[in-house]
Design a protein around this nucleic acid. Structure first.
Lengths: 221, 221
DNA sequence: CCTCACTCTTATGTATACATTCACGCACTC
DNA sequence: GAGTGCGTGAATGTATACATAAGAGTGAGG
């Protein structure tokens, strides 16, 4: 694999995991030494991270890991509502229910995975992510897909912040089930509205979960 | 200005203007020679163009100017509907009508600009762009703003393709007026729906205009 | 005559040397 | 004592040399 690709993935992973905390400086020489490559591929990786919104130029010379406070999470969900709502609407409108029949079963069985410990949790998120993939693919819109991929990066970052309440995840699974059913039924309005409902409840849970962990509500990491 | 920034702007301008046609190869050495800088800043510029969606990797080694056919224009408008609809909705919800009062007058006077030749046309688009700016700013959502800026790049590219029918532009101005009025009134639903209507009519015109110029409907440039 | 493989060309990928600019600190002046 | 200006240093910005790999062209073999 290309060194720039390795550097990008390594840095991205560390930002999503929180190993690189919000506000941490991303200096070329330092990261190049740490990752064992030269400045050139690091430079490319940092540019991609900035384009992704995971890194932000604090000034002309200093790049930092982007902040992740309550306000930016609300912003993320406002954007997700627009993009995922439209994706669900388009997917429903394409009238290809057969693409989603296998996924429907998988989502329907997801709640039971939550009793299988950490392994089950990964499987649960695997099913949810597969649904996102299929909706994006069914929407058949490359530009929308690119925007969704960016948003999903940030969503993954938020996901690691919120506690994983089995109760909430069970509810989320039934919300996803409604989304997939409305797509299968070709009901575009319902698909969009069910997505809106899901994101609303998901945001409420995320904010409460973060508030519980970081009572000030601003600096969350 | 930095060489990479100059290279990026120069290439972007040429792509938006059509001087670099869809499918044109973007080779590092060739562009570096042409722009009078070394490969390094060109490389950064090309990476940014690819992130913008203005360039596409045709294979592992060849980067091309992105295609601009009817299908990708439809995709763009599907994305615009999601993003601009949400932006208008948020802007209306923020209840800051005073931000838009001066702009309202400017938009209301826009149709008359269309009788002033090329200079007036630029002024017309200046007013429209200012509205877009203010809606983005009023939406107060950095992530949405970043997505909107990407979309507006592509919109600018499409704009140059469609003929500028004064009749259509006069109608568009009244659509914009309704959008701005609904934001001033704090009517979020109306703002979103008016945006939807505007984009629908705009897309219809763009497709018809392109079809008239390129009867096959696929390779438009 | 077609196909496959090898080589050679030419592109990109990476490392590094050099240029430039900004920031910090110290000293000098008012 | 405060403020300004210059010097020093360390960071990014750029150029270029070198490494590597993809692709085209040519040759031989079927």
């Amino acid at each position: 694999m290309r060194a720039s690709e390795r550097a990008y993935r390594a840095l991205r992973e560390e930002i999503l995991d929180g190993a690189l905390e919000p506000g941490a400086a991303l200096a070329e020489v330092e990261q190049a030494n740490r990752l064992g490559v030269s400045r050139t591929p690091v430079r490319e990786a940092l540019a991609r991270l900035e384009a992704d919104g995971l890194a932000t130029a604090a000034s002309a010379r200093v790049l930092q890991v982007s902040a992740l406070d309550a306000a930016s999470i609300v912003s993320l969900y406002e954007l997700r509502e627009a993009l995922e709502g439209q994706a669900a609407r388009l997917a429903a409108g394409r009238r290809e229910p057969e693409r989603f029949t296998a996924l429907r079963k998988r989502i329907a069985g997801a709640p039971e995975l939550l009793d299988s410990g950490d392994e089950g949790l990964r499987a649960y998120y695997g099913a949810v992510d597969a649904l996102d993939d299929e909706i994006e693919s069914a929407a058949a819109n490359a530009m929308l897909g690119a925007a969704l991929r960016s948003v999903r990066l940030h969503s993954a970052r938020v996901r690691r912040l919120a506690r994983h309440h089995p109760e909430r995840l069970r509810a989320a699974a039934s919300e996803h089930l409604l989304i997939v059913d409305s797509i299968i039924a070709g009901d575009a309005d319902l698909a969009a509205h069910a997505t809106h409902v899901h994101l609303h409840l998901s945001l409420r849970h995320a904010l409460a979960s973060i508030e519980a962990r970081h009572p000030d509500g601003h600096r969350v990491a």
